[in-house]
């Protein structure tokens, strides 16, 4: 993917501010969008290759790139100036940044045994289960970022007809691989955790495999697509994975 400001007109106003004693936030004023994420991921790569050595972590998010540093190594004021300068420089020449997004197809079983909240989502959206599956699998979702827990994918692009509020009372345990909807987001739980998402299916794909050579299945700017499978296919894939 090549960046071009003409192709992606976007308000690129930003501000660098301190976040605690060990981080700086580069925060953009534009609303979250696929285009803004492309800039933020591009900027992350630019700072990694052109910025000072020894930065601890660079966490991209919808509107913000958080840079975590060791205050033993950096003074926040001079680092802030350096980051400001690098960001301006990057935004002038984003065309130089190239990424190679992959499309990852993820199987999901939407059958009732794995979809405890399908009825609730039907009721809220006025759609039938088949329509929900159809809409959920028709979209190419953009990976904005990974995070909160290992391997979780923040996906953009959920069809607005599927928007559905979180459950009033979160579940104590949602199994790893559960596919849910919360507000305008959809996602897959990478680990068994408590959670308030409306669960409409279950994927046999593991998002985080710490003991594998490739622990994560996707990177920011990748495209994720879901495809429906039945219970016996689910069992077959699960067995293959273990």
């Amino acid at each position: 993917m090549t960046f071009s400001e003409k192709k992606y007109p976007l308000n690129l106003d930003f501000d660098v501010s301190t976040n605690g004693d060990s981080a700086l936030d580069i925060r953009f004023s534009a609303e979250p969008s696929a285009n803004l994420s492309r800039y933020i991921i591009g900027l992350r790569q630019y700072i990694l290759s052109h910025g000072p050595n020894g930065l601890a972590d660079l966490i991209p998010a919808y509107q913000c790139l958080t840079i975590i540093f060791d205050p033993n190594l950096f003074d926040d004021e001079s680092l802030s100036q350096e980051i400001q300068r690098l960001t301006l420089k990057f935004l002038k020449t984003p065309g130089k940044i190239k990424t190679k997004p992959h499309t990852i197809r993820i199987p999901v079983c939407y059958e009732s045994i794995f979809a405890p909240d399908m009825t609730a989502v039907c009721k809220h959206t006025g759609l039938s289960p088949d329509e929900i599956v159809q809409l959920h699998t028709a979209t190419s979702y953009l990976v904005h970022m990974l995070g909160f827990s290992p391997g979780f994918l923040y996906l953009g692009g959920l069809d607005s007809r599927l928007y559905c509020p979180r459950k009033n009372k979160p579940r104590v345990r949602i199994p790893a691989g559960a596919v849910g909807i919360a507000g305008n987001q959809t996602g897959i739980y990478p680990q068994a955790t408590p959670g308030g998402w409306q669960i409409i299916g279950q994927s046999p794909t593991q998002l985080f495999q710490p003991y594998s050579k490739f622990p994560f299945i996707a990177a920011p700017l990748d495209i994720v697509e879901f495809y429906p499978i039945n219970k016996s296919e689910f069992a077959a894939i699960s067995q293959y994975n273990h």
Binding site: N19, G20, D21, S22, D25, D57, I59, A61, C64, T66
Partner: peptide, 10 residues
């Protein structure tokens, strides 16, 4: 608030 990077101590 729009979700963004969070680290120990916040």
């Amino acid at each position: 608030m729009v979700s963004s990077g969070l680290y120990p101590g916040s």
